[in-house]
Amino acid sequence: MSTHAGQVVLSLPGGRSLRLARRALWAGLVMAVACLLVCTLGIFTGTYHITTGQVLEVLGGGGTTTDRFIVIDQRLARLCAALAVGASLGLAGSLFQTLTRNPLGSPDIIGFTTGSTTGALAVLLIGGAGTGVGAGGGAVLGGLATAALVQMMSSGRRGTGGSRLIITGIALGAMLASVNDYLITRADIESAESAKAWTFGSLNAITWSQSLPLLLAFPVLLAATAVLARPLRMMEMGDDTSAGLGVRTEHVRFAALGVGVILTGAAIAVTGPIGFLALAAPQLARRVARVPGVPVATAALTGALLLCTADFLAQRVLAPFQIPVGLVTGALGGLYLMWLLWRQE
């Protein structure tokens, strides 16, 4: 590796960089096609029977009022929410894992998901607001406050180390989980049941109004993540080395924390906390693409694919009953975490 005019030039032998780029592109295309297939199944199938011709008629702008409600306001709204939430959590996980240089550095492991949940529950149970903008604002603020505390408590003389940040986040997340349980136990029965169901993470009965803020914010957050990807990749060589190459490490670290927390909080505001998705998506994307670091676009597509697939299973496994998608991702994520820990030995 050499530097020229303040830029990093990677010296890769024999066109290796071109092969890595092609591999990442093909991995992204495969994930995109897989997402399209799962979404097609979600649109054309369901407990309410609608023929393929009727679905196509609705998508073409026609159809009956009932058919349009089922296809547009239920199935399509649910799929768009799953895509946006899954992609947001995949991006958040890629930011935190690159920042901490640790495959366990995801927002649900280091406490940011729990902090966002605390903020949302405070709004729901203390403020009396319904799920929506109020809970979304509480989730983002709770996540930002947690990130600030973790950053402050994990900072040392040599900066914020990845392992120190993870351990601090785990400890703070455990304390905040107790706060969440306390908030639920102090609420009235009806509010407590509603809040507890929300903490499972679910796409059941999702509406366009609930997911619209995330759908509008996601392109901006994706662009911010893409901008941060290069300096974060350089920071994996160490703060001293990256600073010598012109990276403003503290500014990049704070920006990555902020964008990651906003992605996490905005996703939680739509569905409630979805466990293990941010942990698994970046690592699966890296293994599929077979490139150094975590590819941003592939991580987002992997997160979207995982959540759409998990939600499809949540709707179909016990049909006509629907289970919260967070229970499915939690079960699959637990198996993934055991596999990951086994691979690290």
Rank of each mutant, 00 (worst) to 15 (best):
G258T: 13
A278R: 07
G258H: 08
G115F: 09
V291E: 11
G244Y: 11
G169K: 03
L257P: 05
P231M: 06
A139N: 12
G93Y: 12
L59Y: 04
W26G: 00
G136Y: 08
A129H: 07
A148F: 15
T298P: 03
I274W: 13
V8S: 07
T207K: 05
T64R: 10
N102P: 12
G143M: 03
T168Y: 02
A267N: 11
L183T: 10
A192N: 03
A289S: 11
T225D: 01
L89K: 00
R22H: 14
A205M: 11
G130V: 10
G86L: 06
L124H: 04
G138H: 07
I170E: 06
E193Q: 14
R253D: 03
G334Y: 04
A192W: 02
L327H: 01
Q151E: 04
E190M: 03
L125R: 06
A77H: 07
A310W: 04
T113Q: 00
T146K: 03
R233A: 15
G201F: 04
A27H: 13
L313W: 04
W339M: 12
S17E: 15
H4M: 05
A266D: 02
Q322C: 08
M234D: 12
T52H: 04
G143T: 05
G169A: 05
V33G: 11
V33F: 13
G201T: 02
T185L: 13
L279N: 05
G46S: 04
L121F: 05
Q7N: 10
T302D: 06
A224S: 05
V261R: 08
